[in-house]
Amino acid sequence: MDTLASADLVAAFRTELDLCRVSPGETVLIFTDPRFVHPEYVPAAFAAARTLGAEVYVMTAQGDQMMDDRLVRAAWNNADMILGMSMLPRGIGSWMYTDTSNDALKAGARVLMVQEPFAGLQRMLPNENIRRRGLIGAQMMEEAKEIRVTSAAGSDYVMRKDGRKGAYQCGIADAPGRWDHWPSGMVACAPLEDSTEGIYVVEPGDVLLGLWRHAQTQVRMTFEKGRITRIEGGSDAYLLQAYLDSHGDDGAYRVSHAGWGTDERADWGAIGMDSESKYGTILVALGRNVFDAPTEHCGLGGVNNSTAHCDICCRNTSLWLDGRLIVENEQFMVPDLR
């Protein structure tokens, strides 16, 4: 990155950390690894946190760190604010699905994931409208017991979520024990792992985020008693099947989390958090969901320990909560969610 461009980075990180209520005397831990794809973020965040009066430390873990090292756990458990700039441990979706992250949240840390390209950080800088939509959606999700997803392409499946929390992301971790991801705008929950029944269809142009690609061919998944029993279609079906099979565990074939995007600024062409956050789109992921947080409307509370995690983001899809239509083909039917 151009040296002068770093000035924009520092300004953006200061704005973000101010939203996360970083204050003088707090301890900020920046966690990264040698393979992090945006190494310029580390000094920019360091400088921004210092301008806010925080005590800042950088921990660079080895590239094969599994997040269970005593030193790593001790650092995470004793920080006020953690900036996760890493995809460690490799293969399970990221550190957010580890005991180290869950325990740090329980200890009261505010935890923020930062790993998207700078264009996305700027374009989807958090605002109050995204937080408002997320909170209202999470409250509705928490009260619901059944989720149904349909589409003209043939999706029609139901998931139970009795007792599971409703959560939202808005890009701001501003309360003890809260996790968030900058940038993001979404509502989610972890359905009961044995509850999904029906047909889940992914159309060309939808995003197979776990495979880092827009689908080129239709994928048709059949769920029975919570588990995928059949994957049909062309090349993308083959790739998805191979990905799930490669993990060698039953949880790879079960739903991880389900919900919708809330940010109209998201770019469908930019694969990543833009895909999950796109306003009115439906996200139903597969695999690991052992991620929780003590704050209200944060975390998933699932019990799926699979090493797989594959987010799947679909346009032109509708979602019901307990029989009430919430989203229809990327339009919110509930005025408060608009």
Rank of each mutant, 00 (worst) to 15 (best):
R288I: 10
C310K: 02
C310T: 15
N289H: 06
G301P: 09
C314L: 07
R315N: 12
A308R: 05
C314V: 11
S306G: 11
P294H: 01
V290E: 07
C298W: 00
D311H: 01
V290L: 04
E296F: 04
D292F: 02
R288A: 13
I312T: 13
C313W: 01
L300I: 07
R288E: 08
C298N: 15
G302N: 07
C313E: 15
A308K: 12
A293Q: 08
G299S: 03
T295G: 14
D311L: 10
E296M: 03
G301A: 13
C298H: 00
L319P: 00
G302Y: 05
N304P: 05
T307A: 14
T317V: 13
A308E: 14
V303D: 14
C298Q: 09
G301W: 06
V303G: 05
N305G: 06
C314N: 06
S318G: 11
R288W: 01
G301K: 01
D311T: 05
V290W: 00
H309R: 07
S318E: 06
E296Y: 04
C314D: 11
C310I: 13
G301T: 09
C314Q: 13
T295I: 10
T317C: 10
L300H: 03
G301L: 08
A293V: 03
C314Y: 02
N305Y: 08
C313M: 12
N304S: 09
C310M: 11
R315K: 11
L319Q: 02
I312M: 14
H297W: 09
P294A: 05
S306Q: 11
G299R: 02
S306T: 09
D292R: 01
A308C: 15
R288F: 02
C298S: 13
P294E: 06
R315M: 12
L300V: 07
C298K: 05
C310W: 09
N316E: 15
N316W: 03
S306N: 14
T307Q: 11
H297I: 13
G302L: 02
V303P: 00
N289D: 08
F291L: 08
C314G: 02
D292P: 10
S318D: 07
P294Q: 02
C310Q: 14
T307N: 08
L300M: 02
A308Y: 09
D292L: 04
L319K: 00
I312P: 13
S318I: 14
C298E: 02
A308N: 15
G301H: 07
N305W: 04
L319S: 03
P294V: 01
C314A: 09
G299V: 04
T307V: 03
V303F: 05
S306A: 14
I312V: 15
V303R: 09
D311N: 12
R315V: 06
N305R: 11
C314M: 15
G301R: 00
C314R: 10
G301I: 12
D292W: 06
C310A: 15
I312G: 08
G302I: 06
T295Y: 06
D292I: 07
C310Y: 08
N305L: 14
N316Y: 08
A293E: 05
S306D: 14
F291R: 01
V303M: 01
N316T: 09
I312C: 10
L319N: 03
V290A: 11
H297Q: 08
C298G: 05
R288G: 07
D311Q: 07
S318R: 00
P294K: 00
I312K: 07
N305E: 14
F291H: 07
D311V: 13
